[in-house]
């Protein structure tokens, strides 16, 4: 029996299942790129911070609301946990998946709205994009995260609509979850770096 190039014996071709569904694989690659994007922003922030003369946060700038945002962070993390349990229920076909997903979406929406209110307050205190390095990096990094949170919120709403109609498949739901876990997971890092 002839062998192939690497000396392996000939075998009948077997079509294997892909290791990961297409959507999951594509979303994982995309999220890896997003992680690099955020680490670029974080690197820029670390370097900007190290350049500050007179300490960080710069004197004469408004303080960032550390405690309120800790509460908001907890809400976002709770949203991720809810989504995890929603997925477990979804796999079993349990009807409470719908409620859990809705809770997760509402918590995510709460995070975005609360963040917006915080921004309005900060702008009122004089912290703007052009007011200095702190303002610039704050709105850049937190704003970029907010854009992702809104996108993730929209994606989850879409999955909820499909779930409500009963035609949600795992191939839609899993990539959506990966994206939301990314949004949830990157936030504590940003909170720790930017606020604390």
């Amino acid at each position: 029996m002839p062998d192939d190039a690497l000396g392996r014996p000939y075998q009948v071709p077997v079509k294997r299942e892909p290791l990961l569904p297409n959507g999951v694989m594509g979303m994982l690659i995309f999220v890896a790129t997003e992680v690099m994007f955020f680490s670029g922003l974080i690197s820029a922030f670390v370097i900007g911070k190290s350049n500050a003369i007179g300490g960080w946060p710069p004197p004469g700038q408004p303080r960032l609301p550390v405690e309120e945002t800790a509460f908001n962070t907890a809400a976002l993390l709770a949203s991720g946990v809810c989504l995890y349990f929603a997925n477990r229920a979804f796999r079993k076909g349990a009807p409470r998946a719908k409620g859990l997903l809705l809770t997760s979406i509402l918590l995510g929406g709460f995070f975005v709205v609360f963040q917006g209110a915080e921004w309005v307050a900060l702008v009122g205190e004089g912290l703007t994009l052009t007011s200095g390095q702190l303002g610039g990096f704050f709105y850049l990094i937190v704003g970029t995260h907010a854009v992702h949170a809104v996108a993730g919120f929209a994606i989850l709403l879409y999955t909820y609509r499909k779930l409500a109609h009963g035609d949600l498949s795992g191939f839609t739901f899993w990539p959506a979850q990966i994206f939301w876990y990314f949004v949830v997971g990157v936030w504590p890092v940003l909170y720790w770096l930017v606020y604390l």
Partner: peptide
Amino acid sequence: FMASVGPLIAGAVMLFM
């Protein structure tokens, strides 16, 4: 490309701003 482009997009956003 995927692994390296993120920081440049971050830089591009900052330069744009």
